[in-house]
Amino acid sequence: MTATATTTPNTLIARSLIILLMIVTLLPFLSMLSAALAPQGTYPNGLQWPADPQWGNFVRAFEVAKMDQLLLSSTLIVLGVVPISVLIATMAGYGLAKLTTNKYKWLYLVFVFGLTLPFEAVITPLYYEVRALGLLNTRFAIILPLIGLYMPFSVYWMRAHFLNVPHDLTEAAQLDGATRWKEFWLVQVPLARPAIMSLTILLFLWTWNQFLLPVVLVQDPMQRTMAGALGAFQGQWGTDIPLLCAGSLLILAPTVALFLLFQRQFVAALMQGAVKG
């Protein structure tokens, strides 16, 4: 009796708190939307539905920001980073979890050391390294360093998964005549699908939203990620609030759309990602 009596108001409080949080979360988006629909060149108010919504602002922002090229560029970068990162991290995770003794724990610790490393700590030498490789201002300037920078988390993540796979399966595969390579592809990878899926989602988001590397290593916004291009877009159109807001909304639309589509997977990945990271 007491339990129900005391939890009911609690639930009410909790719900109102959550609804308040949701409103706070959504307000910036709504405010941007209302500004994006204001007539060009005006100075709109914070949140005010315009009398005559200018949906055309989105078209103009799309053209001005060359959204099609940006989408292509971001996609190319993601395709360059994510599959390779996931593959080599899965291999390393398997190697570290299943093939090494405690004697090689240090190797794993070397990877883990990078988990808390701020990208800013290596950005300066990365610039000179990428320049020496002749890759400055190309998409590879973003792709190659990102693969390396993602390794600590990705390897840590995949190793944690493989540690939970019963060792008997490895031994059964060995007795069934599988080489390590075959065991990896035919037994381990299919079983690791959920972990690989989450890792893919996280790396996709982080790559798509990466800002520091494009800003430092790539001058041309058309070779950057979406987020990097947004920086340039703001620099150029920062004073035209309706255009800026329309452009920002367009630029954040792709990930939000994917997120809404795969809501469950994204939430799971982000939560686990935080816990394990």
């Binding site: 019963p166 059964a172 595969a173 060995q174 599988a178 079983l191």
Partner: peptide
């Protein structure tokens, strides 16, 4: 192990969870 001509039945059975019984049996 694979070249010794031995087969083993594990305490945990160690069946491959992602394969059908048919594929489990035929994997080797």
């Amino acid at each position: 192990p694979r070249d010794r001509g031995v087969a083993m039945v594990f305490q945990s059975y160690a069946l491959y969870p992602h394969m059908s019984v048919y594929d489990n049996v035929g994997f080797g």
